[in-house]
Amino acid sequence: MDWTWFHKLASPPHFYRIAGRLAPGLGWPALVLILAGLYGGLVFAPADFQQGDGFRILYVHAPSAWLSMFIYAMMAIAAGIGLIWRMKLAHAVAIAAAPIGAWFTFLALATGSLWGKPMWGTWWVWDARLTSELILLFLYLGFLALHASIDDTQRADRAAAVLALVGIVNLPIIHYSVYWWNTLHQGSTITKLGRPSITLDMLWPLLVMLVGFTLFFGAVLTRRVQAEVLRRERNAAWLRAELAR
């Protein structure tokens, strides 16, 4: 197999140029999908027979929770690639993804809290799902803090990458926590293989939101990776040519 495309993509200048075109290409579809999902979730979908209109928090809570884990997995894989193959761009991707992941983990916790209060009667409970999600937030913050605390970028990249890889163990714990332990948190809505426990009118806005949020992450990530590439690039000739545009 010809791998030149991969090596080209891994070159920061080449990636920078692709990312410049990619960000709007991801951002606009994300906006359309999120608006459609908002309409579907807030207006179109019927109220839940047990939770009434309160269940609609699902449409921002589940996509945030999905991104909190998806971004961590992506960040850790990127950090691992950077660690093993010493690929500079991979480290840039990992450090660019971390703040976005931390924000969506915060959103998953906050919207979950707003959902928990009317349904469970409490804002917070030290239960397996909630606690492991809170640990995820600390992993993101630890990753960012560790990276910021080391002046030499390459050493910071490697140290933070090790932390990210160790933290991966938390992902299956979050996912399976609702099955492994007694928990207040309800089980998954759509990951039961092939048989979602939700009517189609409620399901499509959720799927649209999940895709919209993921594209949104892609758009924000490409902008942040661009910033990171500029910050790290020491090739004056390329920077001069690029910034002159």
Binding site: L38, L107, P118
Partner: peptide
Amino acid sequence: GGYAAYVWPAFGLT
């Protein structure tokens, strides 16, 4: 449906 105090802050915060 009576859940305005929870639904709108969740969407607004997001």
